[in-house]
Computed example of a mutant assay.
Amino acid sequence: MSNLLSASEIVALQLPGLPTTKVAIAAKAARESWYFEERTGLGGTRKVYALPGQYMPKPRGMGERLEQVVSLYPDRVNAAEVAGVSIQLLRRIITEESDPPLQAVLNLARPMGISLDWIVSGEGDMYETPPRAAVEAPANPNSNMVAFTLAGTDVQMAFSRHWIKQQLQVSAESLELMQVPGDSMEGTLSSRDVVLVNKADTQPANGLFVLRLDGVLDVKRLQRLPGSKLKVSGSNEAYDPFELDLTQATPGFEIVGKLVWYGRIV
């Protein structure tokens, strides 16, 4: 099957009637016997689910909004190919004769930067807010404060340059503020936690790092081992640790940066 989503992706959709945490999504999926498959990559094994159709809202006017999205493509044939559906099904979706598959809606929306909330409910802006730069200059250039924008959002947090220099011992310009990606550190870090990542520190060493594994961001604990080996592990028992040979290139493995601070809502 192709319309499969991880628990993290389902949570990010914020669909009515569904839980707002990955753990609760997994529990609901097990309780309601959702179809799932297990995918294995460098980060370990994870489940991806077929989201039941009853959780996809079907308000009136959705077909009209989808037609606006389709009009952004060269023609309907191209839009159908991007959506992953036949031209006949695309026509029925637009006329609201058929329910739109969730994956088809996502496939159409993401390349154009269209808000899923707008497609589903008609509320808010049609286009997602473009991500801002990771670091924004303070309004007063002589200020000791530096403002970071949470990647992909309008949320900002300000930190003292002096504190960054003295406590984190890094340059503010090398830091990026992001929400914890993935769930492999569940128990130590949660997806609601916010972290500062030093993107200048990409050498394999002991500590917590943001990694790109097979193109997917995740947080892992790295540990140098004798014999030029690197152990990659998490706190979530659903993911098995693995080792890498640092003397050999490892396709699909990239160190994005080291975690130097985290904040949590309690």
Rank of each mutant, 00 (worst) to 15 (best):
A80N: 10
S2E: 15
L189M: 09
L66T: 05
A7R: 02
A12N: 13
Q54E: 14
S115Q: 12
G234R: 00
G44A: 04
L177A: 11
F253H: 02
P130W: 06
N107H: 07
N78A: 15
G152N: 05
S8L: 07
Q203K: 02
I25Q: 04
E254M: 06
R132C: 08
G43Y: 02
D214T: 03
W34M: 04
A139S: 12
D245A: 01
N107G: 06
V195C: 08
L246M: 07
W163H: 12
V70M: 11
L116F: 13
I119F: 07
P57M: 13
S2C: 10
Y239E: 01
I255D: 01
S98E: 15
G152Y: 05
S2G: 13
S174D: 13
V155T: 15
E32D: 10
V23C: 06
D214Q: 05
K199H: 06
N142P: 05
Q167G: 12
I87Q: 12
A7D: 02
N206K: 02
Q179T: 13
A24I: 00
V197N: 09
P16H: 11
E123W: 08
D240M: 14
Q203R: 01
V256L: 04
E64D: 14
S2K: 14
A29T: 00
P226H: 00
L259G: 02
S86Y: 08
G43V: 01
A50Y: 09
K220D: 00
L116C: 11
Q248D: 04
L230F: 01
G84C: 09
L5I: 08
E128F: 07
N236S: 09
G187Y: 01
S6D: 04
P241G: 03
I93A: 03
G152Q: 04
V170E: 03
G122F: 06
